[in-house]
Amino acid sequence: METVIVVEGLVKTYNGELVLDHISLRVRKGESVGIAGPNGAGKSTLLRIIAGIEPYDDGIVQVKGSIGYVPQDIILLPWRTVRGNILLAAKIRGIPRLEAEKIVEAEAPRLGLEEYLDRYPKEISGGTRRKAQILMALALKPDILLLDEPFTGLDSSTIEALQETIRRLREEYGLTIVTVSHMMDELTSISDRLILLTYKPARIKAVVEL
């Protein structure tokens, strides 16, 4: 299977402190990889570097395909409705409005978002906002979905529903998924492979095939 993410000898420092210490990993097309480690280990930094929104000091990062990034802190513009946020994101990425609307109409009911599309982010719960951010990422027609701590702050039934959604999206869209989380059990159920990181600086401690 084709490799779509290559990270080789990645080094990242913050104010002189080593955060990521020669991280190397490869992700194949259609694979779902979980990156686990304690809070503050640098998992989110690694994901942001893969997403191309964080600079790094040394190493090679190559990504083949378009990315849908779902950050840990859900960010939806408060002055736009959920639908407005999604369509703006699609517009910026150059996805035709009709295509984005088609994805929204098809996926919103399945994500339980139908009645929230025309609401503002402040009017909906944290779990619903997370689903809205996932829908936003999907509307960008990504090849690779990057999920940063998707289960944090959610109750067990919402976590189960979200795990089911992630598995289904992978099946239906053939997405490559990279998820970082400190919640090992939750991560295990959606991943083919687990990469365990050490705490400060982050190094690869173990790779577990599931």
Partner: peptide, 24 residues
């Protein structure tokens, strides 16, 4: 800063950043 992170993650250009993210 999270708003600017969203703009960057979407690959917004300078003008798009200004009109869709900064000014509002």
């Amino acid at each position: 800063s999270r708003i600017m992170l969203l703009a960057r993650s979407l690959g917004a250009g300078k003008w798009e950043e200004l009109f869709y993210f900064v000014l509002p």
